[in-house]
Design a protein around this nucleic acid. Structure first.
Lengths: 342, 342
DNA sequence: AGTTTTTACGCAACCGATTGCTTAAATATA
DNA sequence: TATATTTAAGCAATCGGTTGCGTAAAAACT
């Protein structure tokens, strides 16, 4: 059973005693085909159950109507929303989305970039793996004129589209908020420094302290690698074990911030009275935990939409040249119980 | 800038004075090509920067090394993990994954199924949209011999692969657990009845009550449409406003269960003393909320892996016939603070 | 040396749609 | 009526690999 042969334009052509060129043109409403023939062809196509073979037309045109996505992991709230935004916009424009994961591994990222290249994607959207420091594997897309958008975790230098938030000022705002709530000894659970976004957040944190004449105590800055819950617990314990523990924590993501809250609560501290906490991302957990986690809104879905739009717009251009363009999306401080002292 | 022509096997053939057939075979280590030539070809390919054109070979073989995924929404923890599992297994086997979303709309699901069909995916994995009741749009895959796997939200009748959990017995276990903790008036926040999995869960709930000689009170069963947080709040308020409110709630997902906890807490009820709650899915939020939410583990990632494996295995078969096979994955009751009375 | 077998490679069709160029027929113009 | 123009459609090459079949050369065998 099964395995019916697909109906092709050859079948339609044969049935109607036409050439394949005429059928092809009729199906696309080309002006050089008479209305009568066009109708006849379209009717036959429908009746015979014709479905265009995307592969064949892609091969011919060397265009695929497919956008490749290369991210660390799908199953994180931020990434899932990002993809959702990418997919929704692409879908509306008739584009497919291919998803690949690097699992934060450099080698996987290189392999997947190659696989996407071989699939002849029309464009590629990438958020770098934690490990990645070199970006040579993306040069081939530029050389080929394939639009490349880096999102969120973007490389410092690369002449292409970048869609991101202003991490520096977001972190500045977060830290400033804690200061305004009366914190004077604010710790920072930071990400790896060579990863741009975390470095920027750390910079914003430091500058906010300086601007308000607070001392920057290196003991209060803990760098963690993967920003997991467990690492958040460890970092928080380390901070609370200090001789003079902090009275506020600004964490580079919500997962570690939630860990901080749990640890502090378990150690009998009151939040936000004894220690105020603010995270980053506005993950769903942030309004589930008690007290609610103050955080920075990170417009994931919106970013995804923007990425797709950049690609689609680029593909419509006639001039083929490389483009450098950085788009910043807005963030804001979301104040919940974990930091609200006044 | 840009638009370098790709290197093809023709370029390699010309450079080495060989035919394209020889080059093609050499690149695949075909036995009929001498080792010397094979090496020469592979060296030249590497040197010239050859990348195979997947489209061309797909067109010829009518196989794409691509698995299509059609789900309601990506940005939900269960779905994100499911996709992650699908993608990881597919990736290892050299397959790409195309993601599409139905947004729980029947029409979108039909359109996306068609788009995936046109893309000539090698297999398709689908979790039905909430709205979907007819499944005619999937028949074309069966007719064509393309493996189709339904996962989680599966149709009642369809001769194909299905990967799911035993919703009936999971719900039975959840309800039984509440009974064992001393609950005697257990409510159920249920999903739409025509969606199989929710119906099964409701059945398990009812049967558990009966088995333990507890009355099934229709007032205690609230059906909600999309299982959102807001709907969970509404449902809980309705239940707690009853003349004789429940002392336990079994909710068909974690989102509504968390909503139930929050509402109950806000109304001054103690959990689990006044009212015990158990959810379904084991979403990340379940161990973040206070008290921790008891729930049913739903092996999303594992399910994803299983789906991909079914497809890959099917594609390796030589006999081409349709297959009906239902795979049940294990679930267990995860007991946390929200229901632990003893 | 003559015959059979094996090895290594090439020829050409094919997958399905697209498109520049050509041409036959229909219509308009002189 | 003869010629110019427009309309409608077909021919054949093309995109880049793949593969069944054929064959010359080398190796093995009598």
């Amino acid at each position: 059973m099964t395995n019916n042969k697909d109906v092709t334009i050859y079948d339609i052509a044969e049935k109607l005693n036409l050439s394949t060129s005429t059928v092809s043109r009729a199906l696309k409403n080309h002006s050089s085909i008479s209305k009568k023939t066009t109708k006849k062809v379209n009717d036959a196509a429908k009746e015979m159950g014709y479905t265009p073979n995307t592969l064949a037309s892609s091969l011919r045109s060397n265009k695929t109507k497919t956008i490749g996505v290369l991210i660390s992991r799908i199953n994180r709230p931020f990434m899932a929303s990002l993809i959702s935004g990418i997919e929704e916009t692409a879908q509306k424009a008739g584009y497919n989305v291919i998803i690949t994961q690097s699992h934060d591994s450099y080698q996987d990222e290189v392999d997947m970039a190659q696989a996407l290249y071989n699939s002849r994607v029309s464009g590629i959207i990438c958020s770098l793996a934690m490990e990645t420091t070199k970006t040579d594997h993306f040069q081939q897309f530029i050389d080929k004129g394939i639009p490349l958008v880096f999102v969120d975790r973007v490389p410092k230098e690369f002449n292409t589209y970048r869609v991101m938030i202003d991490n520096y000022s977001a972190a500045f705002k977060a830290t400033k908020h804690l200061i305004e709530q009366g914190c004077t000894r604010i710790a920072h659970i930071a990400g790896l420094k060579f990863r741009n976004i975390y470095n920027e957040r750390e910079r914003g944190y430091r500058d906010a302290l300086k601007q308000y004449n607070l001392e920057v105590d290196e003991d209060l800055i803990v760098h963690v690698k993967t920003m997991s819950y467990e690492e958040g617990e460890k970092a928080t314990n380390k901070l609370l074990d200090l001789e003079t523990p902090p009275d506020g924590i600004f964490s580079s993501n919500d997962t570690t911030a939630v860990a901080a809250i749990q640890v502090a609560k378990n150690r009998g501290l009151k939040i936000p009275e004894d220690i105020a906490v603010i995270g980053f991302n506005n993950d769903p957990i942030s309004h589930i935990i008690d007290p609610g986690l103050s955080t920075i809104s990170h417009p994931a879905f919106e970013m995804g939409k923007t990425c797709s739009k950049k690609i689609l717009k680029h593909l419509k251009r006639s001039k083929i040249d490389s483009i450098t363009e950085i788009t910043f999306l807005n963030t804001e401080v979301i104040v919940r119980g974990s930091s609200k002292r006044k």
